[in-house]
Amino acid sequence: MLLKDEQYRLKVGLAEMLKGGVIMDVVNAEQAVIAEKAGAAAVMALERVPADIRKEGGVARMSPVSKIREIQAAVSIPVMAKARIGHFMEARILEALAVDYIDESEVLTPADEEHHIDKRDFKVPFVCGARNLGEALRRIAEGAAMIRTKGEAGSGNIVEAVRHIRTIVKEMKQLTVLGREELVHEAKNLQAPLEMVEYVAAHGKLPVPNFSAGGIATPADAALVMQLGAEAVFVGSGIFKSADPEARAKAIVKATTYYRDPVKLLEASEDLGMAMPGLDISKLPEGELMQTRGW
């Protein structure tokens, strides 16, 4: 069984170490150093932050190898990198580079519209996005060792991340009150393996850490998703597209630790300058949504 496998436990183990932390998107070594100094628990290397991918269009791919090496050399915290959905060769290259985690991400242009990567076969752990419990459990069954909400990347708008974390948490709660024969039926509805559905029903939580991403732009946004059940946060465009990245990065780190304490959150929210510009997601054409990539 996947969950008992030694390699898999190591993969989930690193996700355990990242709990209560902030994982920050960076495009070069200079940003990575700012992130580490601000208290990031890890950095995520990518070619362009989601807000720029959205603006510039074109095909978004894995970060250039030279940039990833430069980032690995610059910081002592874990370095993650994104691969396109289904692009197992980008993932193999990232594995050969010894990145600490691979994000099979909807933020990049999908390479395969039907298949995600078979992640069980890799030594490097994977994180994947999900909008609901069924999607989360399918990714875990494929070997993902960490789940994050998809939210709507590059939007500066928290509404989708909230929808996704609330959906996942609610669907997990519902499973805990069902009988065994009902779980078989739910596995069918969720399109997820029964083994995973039974795990969630017994424990009330995913078998891997459950983080949040996609639209976090302020300390208050980070605290909100933590209150709703996220165990750590990813911040993409929210830091380096704001007026004062260093101050904002520090503030979001503090807010993620003290998410239950309004006084500390107030302190973290002072003097940050302008947040990144936000998008009204209901006005975005369907083709521009990133969250509907993958299944």
Partner: peptide, 14 residues
């Protein structure tokens, strides 16, 4: 506990 020592140090200081 385990985690990132740089992150913990930052928060301890702040």
């Amino acid at each position: 506990p385990g985690g990132e020592s740089t992150t913990m140090l930052k928060l301890i200081g702040e």
